[in-house]
Design a protein around this nucleic acid. Structure first.
Lengths: 117, 117
DNA sequence: TGTAGTATGTACTATACACTACACATTATA
DNA sequence: TATAATGTGTAGTGTATAGTACATACTACA
């Protein structure tokens, strides 16, 4: 798994090539943190920020929030809430799919969405 | 949702009727915490303990760990790990089932287990 | 070559988490 | 009734989380 910080840095540098407003300072300002903090996070000198800041970063960089949260070792709080509402069933479901290949999982997702069980 | 502490207390008191070793002190000792701490947790004067201690409590009281963790506002770390391995697919699955009734969810669990997709 | 903008280093902070240690009053029991 | 066990109150601890504030050094470019 790619480290959170280095991934953020790559994304930001890539965007910076076409748009100079993607400097550490400006992105930090838009996301709502101090530039030195973002710098440290990007270089892995500091742990990843809170879920809220990660979401802001994801928006800013056009990345998937759930993927970024995962790299930060976190799980979105709305997903946790869904699990906590029906802990036993959700635990069975999640442990049940843990070794299922992506294809199978995608089928399950489609079925869940269509509500045709 | 029942509060974590009061639920624990009810469970323990019930067991205590048939077995005097289910006192605050003795359960605390077996679980590996100070009795005063367990007492405070049970009365809601202190936040629920860590995942490890909750698991120990679940074993001690014959309760489901995932259910207890949910009451404590937590999600088992092994489930979080499963989600973090495939964040986007798992997020889609979990958000997809959030409004599905229990019956539907149970069907999905069975399918997941049988790997017949 | 000056300066505007940029990245980073150092030091600090406030809050939450997850408890321990011990004293004390009460209750049960032998 | 002595003593053993029980439940609870008060106070304090170490660590992690999630950052800020400011100074310093570098870099581009006009």
């Amino acid at each position: 798994m790619p480290r959170f910080g280095s991934h953020i840095r790559r994304c930001r540098e890539k965007l910076k090539k076409g748009d100079r407003t993607y400097s550490v300072r400006q992105v930090a300002a838009r996301v709502g943190v101090e530039p030195s903090y973002l710098s440290k996070v990007e270089r892995g000198h500091e742990a990843p920020p809170s879920e809220a800041k990660i979401r802001a970063l994801a928006r800013e960089l056009g990345e998937d929030p759930d993927a970024l949260l995962a790299m930060a070792g976190k799980v979105a709080s709305d997903l946790q809430e869904v699990i906590r509402r029906r802990p036993r069933l959700m635990a069975q479901l999640i442990r049940g799919v843990q070794f299922m290949p992506d294809v199978g999982l995608r089928h399950l997702v489609v079925r869940a969405r269509r509500k045709r069980i």
